[in-house]
């Protein structure tokens, strides 16, 4: 396989060129396979700049109640990593008709390990997926994934936590490609009423460490806890992109229309 120039890390980086970007998260196969694809299209139509597609896993330890429920339901619907890649390919094909926006997978480590790491990177790229976020994989254990991904320009987005030490932030910065994912809280996914007022210092800290580690600075996306338009506004002033998960997933349970309206509301 050859490197596809306009995909992978490059596609993600160019999405950030558009300014402050909005990255909704949806679970493949929730509420069912067809509706999840409709929700993803609706999200793009409503102004999402990039999409994070959640691959359901039996033991989602980093997720709160809403996403646990969605993943559980998706698994019951027969959704798997393989089928998620097919769904992504369908979405990417549909996208080609308009503007092509990047797709990243959010997938726990075991399904990827079991699929085979190199094979995963190749299949993901072939399906129009540009990168991956693995919530239970820290860079310390990710040598194989990073190596396979680098060869193909596939993005490995690592998470930075508010309590990560400077040493860890350096490692995260060195290991990430596409962007760095700043966690908006210490805890699991789920809507919160209020976001911490320390986040701006946290993101500044990531940026300054990142600058000293890399010639070309990473973009910083922020997520976990984001639930309303005020949050989006506040966080897009701090970071380059905002990821909205549970709040979008909850709406996916009602309809693609509800997803669209919510994203329009965030964007307004």
């Amino acid at each position: 396989m050859t490197v596809i120039n306009n995909r992978g890390v490059s596609a993600i980086e160019s999405a950030f060129e558009r300014g402050k970007i909005l990255i909704p998260y949806l679970v493949a196969g929730f509420p069912d396979e067809k509706s999840s694809l409709e929700c993803m299209k609706a999200a793009f139509n409503a102004g999402a700049d990039m999409l994070e597609i959640g691959v359901p896993f039996s033991d989602p330890i980093a997720d709160g109640a809403v996403i646990q429920h969605a993943q559980d339901r998706a698994l019951r619907n027969g959704m798997t990593l393989r089928k998620t890649l097919r769904l992504a390919a369908d979405l990417a094909a549909d996208q080609k008709k308009t503007v092509s926006k990047p797709l990243i997978l959010m997938c726990y480590y075991n399904p990827i390990l079991h699929f085979g790491i190199e094979r995963f990177v190749d299949s993901a790229l072939e399906s129009g997926v540009d990168g991956v976020i693995v919530p239970d994989l820290v860079p310390d254990e990710a040598e194989l994934l990073i190596e396979s991904a680098r060869k193909k320009n596939f993005a490995t987005v690592f998470l930075a936590a508010p309590n990560s030490s400077e040493k860890r932030l350096r490692l995260i910065s060195k290991s990430s490609s596409g962007f760095i994912y700043a966690l908006g809280l210490e805890g699991v996914t789920g809507e919160r009423d209020k976001m911490s007022d320390k986040l701006s210092t946290f993101v500044e800290n990531i940026r300054s460490i990142d600058k000293s580690e890399n010639k070309k600075a990473h973009r910083v996306g922020i997520g976990f806890g984001v639930s309303k338009p005020e949050h989006f506004k506040m966080l897009s002033a701090i970071a380059d992109g905002v990821i909205v998960g549970s709040a979008v997933v909850r709406r996916a349970e009602s309809s693609p229309q509800a997803v669209r309206e919510f994203i329009e509301e965030l964007r307004r």
Binding site: D140, F158, G187
Partner: peptide, 12 residues
């Protein structure tokens, strides 16, 4: 073995 956890657990 190893340490396969969310980043937030690494410092603890």
């Amino acid at each position: 073995g190893g340490i396969y956890v969310p980043e937030t657990l690494m410092v603890p």
